[in-house]
Design a protein around this nucleic acid. Structure first.
Length: 516
RNA sequence: GGCCCGUUCGUCUAGGGGUUAGGACGCGUCCCUUUCACGGAUGAAACACGAGUUCGAUUCUCGUACGGGCUACCA
């Protein structure tokens, strides 16, 4: 009786989703698709203080851009288990918290945040740490130390309270993790976590377990930062009597910053010069802008390919993976245990790879857009016509990692040079070369078929006729055409520019050298 | 501090009791190209340390070191 696989990605809308979150979503998605299961997007917005407007929309847009599309959940059509936003499920949780109180697995606690904070500070003074647990709960203000009438009175008086899990004494709690195997924690190390807050909202722990149960989640795939609270969740399933329905856990290794130590964070990206977010984000409060992979012209397939391999690896050497192939090959068993430092260089390499795979027609179309934006050419300008652009792309696409670099690298294909590389001129130019270039000009003017091959042939012949090795004048020719010492294939460029333009550019250059 | 998790080239990783420890990014050299890039070839570059088990450990076990995570009425 294999029930259908159901997984969920459950971010909280406290800001833009960062790439670590995207990877978690990706692994969930891959696992679900691999097994023909469901992938659900649930929004965990139980913390009203940290709610950030726009964050939920950002999450949906980011997943969509990456091609990681939930088939159920917020923003992706209603499913059987709607709503998928925890703030809209608020009425559900209290009942379950009360169930735990009824069965003796949880209790009311009246200690205020301030009181506990003071206690904590006090103990820290003496180098001790405070935990609300099986020892300290006996000395604090809760339904275990207060009489039933006192508790009822406080509650009916509207006094604020929280509901805490009553962690059993002296037990080993085991979590069977698909990636890490058996992980166990002794209950003496656990504290009586708050399940239900005094503002009427559940905490993550309660809401998460209840929703996963209600939504029939079979596998919880999430970041390693949740591993320490996994035993608590196991305890919750047990306390509810849901052990048979308990999902399997898989805790993913963290994404680490490229340099130094620690978890990859918002700050690293713009400091180190790469995005940590899939999409650009402008903080609604501070107006601070964080760059995104999409706006930096990374392709989503390059981004997801890179992300998939950061923590997971197939048994072979294959590295270029389409989403379909990832779904084919993915397995949680092959997810690594250790954290992975993110490498921006390799991400660029992935992008370069996918750029070369793009059809020239697409790149030409995009280049047209870039040029129009940059130069204000007329619509009928020959330099933005398809046939011209289509010939330019092969010259450019091999030398760039990103589309916008095509213009940076090949600016001179579209504009005449306004200055010439002086190093080349002073190193290579001899007044005696004027004879050769005048002859070349002449020869080019008289050509009928001006192609890359014929232009090169004529160049060679003219050089020979002038007793010159081509190498002596080739780079000068390049500088005359482009202004630059290096660049795209020289005679390919000549063919692209065309006979008349080549002649024009040569004349301008030779005049500036007083050679003609 | 306590608890939990981890540790193969600089980075991502494959491998797994006996291997010249493999690949990719990056870096170096050479070839191609009279440029640059692409491509091709090639080089440098790793099993954290110490015990134990074993004929033999990078691989298994235990410690140590180091790294990371968690330790809120945040997720």
């Amino acid at each position: 009786m294999s029930s259908i696989i159901r997984v969920r990605f459950a971010p909280s809308p406290t800001g833009p989703l960062h790439m670590g979150g995207v990877r978690t979503a990706l692994y969930n998605y891959l696992f679900a698709k691999k097994h023909g299961g469901d992938f659900i997007l649930r929004i965990e917005d139980t913390d009203r203080n940290r709610f950030v407007p726009g964050a939920e929309e950002y999450i949906i847009e980011a997943l969509t851009w990456c091609g990681i599309t939930p088939n159920e959940g917020v923003g992706f059509g209603d499913g059987k288990h709607a709503p998928y936003r925890q703030s809209e499920r608020q009425g559900i949780y209290k009942k379950y918290a009360d169930q735990l109180i009824g069965s003796g697995h949880a209790y009311h606690a009246f200690d205020t945040e301030e009181e506990l904070g003071a206690l904590r500070a006090e103990m820290e003074q003496e180098k001790l740490s405070f935990a609300y647990n099986s020892i300290t709960r006996k000395k604090l203000v809760n339904s275990l130390t207060l009489s039933k009438t006192e508790v009822d009175k406080r509650i009916s008086n509207g006094e604020h309270y929280v509901i805490r899990l009553r962690v059993p004494e002296n037990e080993e709690i085991h979590v069977n993790d698909i990636i890490r195997g058996d992980v166990s924690v002794h209950t003496s190390q656990m504290d009586d976590k708050v399940l239900f807050k005094s503002d009427g909202m559940p905490t993550y722990h309660l809401a998460n377990v209840v929703d996963d149960y209600l939504m029939k989640i079979t596998h919880v795939i999430r970041g390693e930062e949740w591993l320490p609270s996994a035993p608590l969740h196991v305890l919750l399933y047990r306390s509810f009597g849901w052990e048979k329905e308990m999902p399997q856990f898989a805790h993913l290794p963290l994404l680490l910053k490229p340099e130094g130590n620690g978890k990859l964070s918002k700050r690293d990206g713009d400091r180190l010069g790469f995005p940590v977010f899939p999409l650009r984000w402008i903080d609604p409060q501070t107006k601070e802008e964080s760059s995104g992979y999409r706006e930096k012209e990374y392709y989503p397939e390059a981004f997801t390919n890179m992300l998939a391999l950061l923590g997971w690896h197939p048994s072979g050497d294959k590295e270029i993976y389409s989403m379909e192939e990832l779904i084919q090959d993915f397995s949680l068993e092959r997810v690594n245990k250790s954290g992975a430092k993110f490498d921006p260089e390799k991400t660029k390499w992935f992008n370069q790879h996918y750029l070369r795979l793009k059809p020239d027609e697409i790149l030409a179309e995009h280049l047209k857009g870039i040029i129009k934006k940059e130069f204000n050419f007329n619509d009928d300008d020959p330099r933005i016509q398809d046939d011209f652009l289509l010939k330019a792309i092969p010259l450019l696409k091999e030398r760039v990692h990103f589309e916008h670099e095509m213009l940076e690298v090949g600016r001179y294909l579209f504009l005449r040079p306004n200055e010439y590389d002086q190093q080349v001129i002073s190193k290579k130019w001899r007044d005696s070369h004027a004879v050769f270039f005048k002859a070349l000009l002449d020869a080019y003017e008289n050509m009928n078929d001006f192609s890359s091959a014929s232009a090169e042939q004529v160049f060679q012949e003219t050089a020979a006729a002038n007793a010159l090795k081509p190498g002596e004048v080739l780079q000068l020719f390049r500088v005359f055409l482009s202004g630059q010492a290096g660049g795209v294939n020289l005679f390919g460029m000549a063919e692209l520019l065309g006979q008349q333009e080549v002649i024009q550019r040569m004349k301008v250059a030779l005049r500036s050298l007083n050679a003609i």
